[in-house]
Design a protein around this nucleic acid. Structure first.
Length: 918
RNA sequence: GGGCGGUUAGCUCAGCUGGUUAGAGCACCUGCCUUACAAGCAGGGGGUCGUAGGUUCGAGUCCUACACUGCCCA
């Protein structure tokens, strides 16, 4: 029988089997529905084709998978769209490295051949990360997989570029950009990482022409002095006022440069006088613009000194720095050198120190796009979770700069602009033009640059659905419902998708947001309605994972050791918003134990199913998951109530992206309630006996147990899709009502299924009694085999006694009790006793108690209760409190105070008795 | 320099709009191989909630300052 599970839970075996099945059966493929109603869709942040799965991906995908599985099971038409990003620089570097092993360079191959090589590479290795995803059980629609360089997406990219150009939002210009001399390309501000570094501040003396005087400037990059075209001082700086308008002699180059006044010169910093190098520093560039200074570029694209650097031509920038400092020193122009902390910009990708460089690049004029992107977040058309990211986002968006989108690479979307060799103008076009649009010359060539990779990924929410065509997909799937991503790409990607989405799906430059219709359009133009931002996965010591530190955890390796389900559950249970996840294997081990617990619960239930089938009490074919289970005992009512409650909790938590709360709620329910209590109690009925009445009892118990268990599996399924699939299929002996548990219905909180307060309260009493007896037995060191009688005094009267009477069997079994006697007299004097507000219980056992230990325990208890009593009394005698506190709170304290009085009295009596004995 | 967080048990973290006794997992201690599970079961110890003020009848929760710490931007 297929419901016979192997004795040992072995995740490896079952997980790969189901992962393949889900893909092969196209379980998560969705046809385009007729309307957008009841659609839930999200876009997988496309991993780089060069990527390998890391913990960040795993967290990201686990969260998305939980959400999408939950929505799918809840009846939504769900689409989770996967794809990969062509990742310009990363991929080009990868293939260049491959070429290097063959002793070749891309320049030797030429552009076309090189790009062919990249495609070849992509064909071979580009699918690796998606294959890894399959191992995670990610329920994406593989039939809709895209690649950012697909023909249709490339066409959309050109369309966007051309439209923005036509709208005057793309321009070409000479600006200082961040230049990576290793990648040999411009990079955007965002691709520069700043690092605090111990550097030096050099003070250099510039002689004043026509006098013995000189002016001392301070700089951290002395080599740039070769390109200086001015010295700037603050106009209010008394020290230098007399020098403004004079001319300084640039040392080493023997060039004359003016001394100018500019507010940017900070009198507090360095000497108060700064050298101005418009071609090699963004601030100096701005000063240069204000004062119409010449721009002298002294470096080539590899950051080597060029012909403008005079005697230093050919030297690397750092070699030049050394040489220049030496030469200045020799000429006694170096006043001093001091240590200085400075923030150095490095290339995000290769960590090479970025060189600000003057060059011609393409830019997006960002203000009009940012305006809308601000408005949609401001007005709540896009909701951020955690909501503090809204502030961060708006701060950034309000201080945004134009976006440099050209990259001097070969791999990527080539810029659709053609330069005319004759009239020097350019032609921007959707399709390759044959002649210059300005002068008609055929002497045109396409711009050699490609677009920033983020330019194309910013468009994905609409281009993947067929834009610029008006497709059905676009109509029903846009805007997507949710974006789940890490904060590290908030500006790179999230912000830019919002800008592009609200522009192109919001009627571009024709939208009038001052009208109601315009606002509606704007609200519908967003690329996603919600953004959930998750934290970083760190190692167990909270260190950032990095290759250099060697603390990178490979999810696949962890999965192989603990199972995907356990790793997913670890991530989910730790995914509290706002805090980074310190990934600790101990946790994962614990969740593998949880999976094992479920496995064994299943084995136990199936064992009883088999027994019932043999005895003819019940058959699996009678089980109908869709039927409403009928509770017949206290434990039935209780576990059903708890099940509804956990269902409610999970629903609420997932709605708020509280994966941790949801996971923990299920964990506690399944283990601490269903396994620890319900199954233990229901064993009594499962072993009822052979008479017809007994069989009926067993049948009812088994059917009910199976209902709760099956429901729990569905509840857990989005978190642990593999083990739940395996066991769920086993329940149906290989003939399940659906092809997968992932297509079954998610347990819903329903108004009818309200909590059974009476059952929960009664069960609490029963549990408390059992725990008390266990505790007393442990204290008295009574052996497990030794059953003991107990005496119970239910001080509150009949109701509590009735609860115990009705559940004597449970008390016997779970507390190791052989006889329960009820008494109307208080038991507080006896040893081996526990008192609580509702009942008193004594374990009848002849053994000398440890007087000292008992006294210590009672004294401690007494002290605790006394403190509580004092607090309660103080509050109750406080007129202000009585007047202002809500009635509920006052009532609660009054009741507790009454209870405390009783308990205190009993404990004091017990202590007095101890004194008599000892 | 500007901005946003965090500080609760040995460790990792929960603690919703302020309200009766601050929770969980792991780790630790004690006893159990009780026929679903030793990846288990039962019991137990452990916290003046970063510091100092303030608001309030009442503060882990709100406010201010400080300390330490993380991140983002310049």
């Amino acid at each position: 029988m297929s419901h016979e599970l192997p004795k040992a839970y072995n995740p490896g075996a079952i997980e790969s089997r189901w992962a393949e099945y889900w893909v092969a059966e196209k379980l998560f493929h969705v046809n385009t529905p007729e309307s957008a109603e009841n659609v839930f869709d999200l876009l997988l942040p496309p991993p780089n084709v060069t990527g390998r799965l890391h913990m960040g991906h795993m967290l990201n995908q686990t969260e998305m998978d939980i959400i999408i599985r939950w929505k799918r099971m809840s009846g939504f038409t769900t689409l989770w769209l996967p794809g990969t990003d062509h990742a310009g620089i990363a991929t080009q570097m990868m293939v260049e490295r491959q070429l290097a092993t063959e002793g070749k360079k891309r320049q030797e191959l030429g552009r076309e051949k090189f790009i062919e090589r990249v495609w070849e590479w992509k064909g071979h290795y580009g699918g690796a990360i998606l294959d890894q995803m399959k191992r995670l059980g990610a329920s994406v629609d593989w039939d809709r997989e895209y690649f950012t360089m697909d023909e249709n997406l490339s066409r959309a990219v050109r369309e966007v570029f051309v439209r923005l150009y036509e709208q005057g939002l793309i321009y070409r210009g000479n600006y200082i950009v961040n230049w990576c001399p290793r990648c040999v390309t411009a990079i955007s501000d965002l691709e520069v990482v700043h690092e605090e570094t111990q550097g030096k501040l050099y003070e250099i003396k510039y002689p004043i022409v026509g006098s013995k005087d000189s002016i001392t400037v301070a700089t951290t990059r002395p080599e740039t002095m070769l390109g200086d075209t001015a010295v700037a001082v603050n106009p209010n700086d008394e020290r230098y006022k007399h020098l403004i308008g004079r001319v300084a002699k640039l040392p080493l180059m023997d060039r004359e440069i003016p001394i100018i006044a500019d507010d940017w010169a900070n009198p507090e910093f360095g000497t108060g006088a700064v050298k101005v190098t418009p071609a090699h520093d963004p601030n100096d560039f701005a000063i240069g613009q204000r004062h119409h200074l010449p721009q002298i570029n002294i470096m080539d694209e590899y950051a080597r000194m060029n012909e403008n650097a005079g005697p230093y031509a050919g030297l690397d920038r750092f070699a030049a720095r050394t040489k220049i400092v030496e030469d200045l020193e020799a000429q006694h122009l170096l006043v001093r050198v001091k240590d200085h902390m400075l923030s150095i910009g490095k290339c995000d990708r290769c960590k090479t120190i970025v060189e600000p460089r003057l060059s011609t690049q393409w830019f997006v004029k960002i203000a009009p796009l940012a305006k809308r992107a601000i408005e949609v977040v401001d007005k709540g058309y896009i909701k951020f979770t955690p909501d503090n990211y809204k502030t961060i986002y708006l701060n950034w968006m309000n201080n945004i700069y134009d976006w440099c989108i050209s990259r001097q690479l070969w791999w990527g979307h080539r810029i659709p602009a053609w330069h005319c060799a004759d009239c020097k103008q350019h032609t921007v076009a959707r399709t390759t033009p044959t002649k210059c649009a300005h002068c008609g010359s055929a002497n045109i060539e396409q711009d050699t640059d490609v677009l920033d990779t983020w330019f194309s990924s910013a468009l994905l929410p609409f281009t993947t659905f067929g834009w610029p065509d008006k497709t059905k997909d676009l109509e029903v799937f846009y805007p997507t419902s949710l974006l789940v991503t890490g904060f590290d790409i908030l500006f790179f990607w999230v912000a830019r998708m919002i800008m592009m989405g609200t522009w192109f799906m919001g009627d571009e430059d024709k939208l009038d947001t001052s009208t109601q219709a315009g606002q509606k359009k704007l609200a519908e133009s967003v690329p996603f309605r919600e953004v959930y931002i998750h934290a970083l996965v760190r190692d167990a010591d909270r260190q950032k994972m990095s290759k250099t530190k060697g603390n990178v955890l490979d999810p696949i390796e962890i999965i192989e050791r603990f199972g995907t389900d356990a790793v997913r559950f670890t991530l989910a249970s730790m995914a509290a918003p706002g805090t980074d996840i310190a990934f600790n294997e101990d946790r994962t081990e614990g969740y593998r134990a949880f999976a094992n617990k479920i496995w064994n619960a299943a084995r136990f239930i199936f064992m009883n199913v088999d027994r019932a089938q043999e005895s003819g009490a019940w058959s699996l074919s009678q089980f109908d998951a869709s039927a409403t289970p009928k509770p017949s005992t206290l434990e039935d009512r209780w576990i059903l109530s708890r099940f509804h409650s956990v269902t409610q909790q999970v629903d609420e938590s997932l709605n708020n992206y509280r994966f941790d709360e949801a996971a923990n709620a299920i964990y506690r329910f399944f283990w601490n309630e269903f396994c620890d209590w319900y199954i233990e109690i229901v064993k009594l009925r499962l072993n009822a006996g052979d008479s017809d009445t007994d069989k009926a009892t067993t049948r009812a118990a088994l059917d009910f147990t199976l209902h709760i268990f099956e429901g729990s599996l569905r509840l857990l399924s989005p978190f642990m899709p593999f083990i739940t699939e395996e066991i769920w299929n086993a329940i149906y002996d290989g003939k399940p009502p659906k092809k997968s548990i992932a297509l079954a219905e998610y347990p819903k909180p329903s108004p009818e299924a309200v909590s059974d307060h009476a059952a929960e309260e009664e069960m609490s009493l029963l549990q408390a009694l059992i725990v008390d007896v266990r505790t007393i037995r442990a204290e008295m060191k009574i052996e497990n085999k030794q059953k003991t009688p107990i005496e119970v005094h239910a001080s509150n009267g009949n109701r509590i006694e009735r609860v115990f009477q009705a559940n004597l069997n449970s008390i016997h079994k779970l507390a190791n009790v052989e006889q329960v006697g009820f008494t109307s007299t208080s038991l507080s004097n006896a040893a081996g006793t526990r008192v609580s507000p509702n009942y008193e219980v004594r374990v009848v056992y002849e053994q000398k108690i440890d007087v000292a230990a008992e006294r210590e325990r009672l004294t401690k208890e007494l002290k605790k209760l006394e403190t509580e009593m004092t607090n309660a009394q103080r509050q109750l005698s406080n007129e202000q409190f009585m007047a202002k506190a809500p009635e509920k709170v006052v009532e609660g304290i009054k009741r507790r105070s009454g209870e405390l009085a009783g308990l205190l009295e009993k404990i004091q009596r017990a202590l007095a008795d101890l004194d008599d004995q000892g």
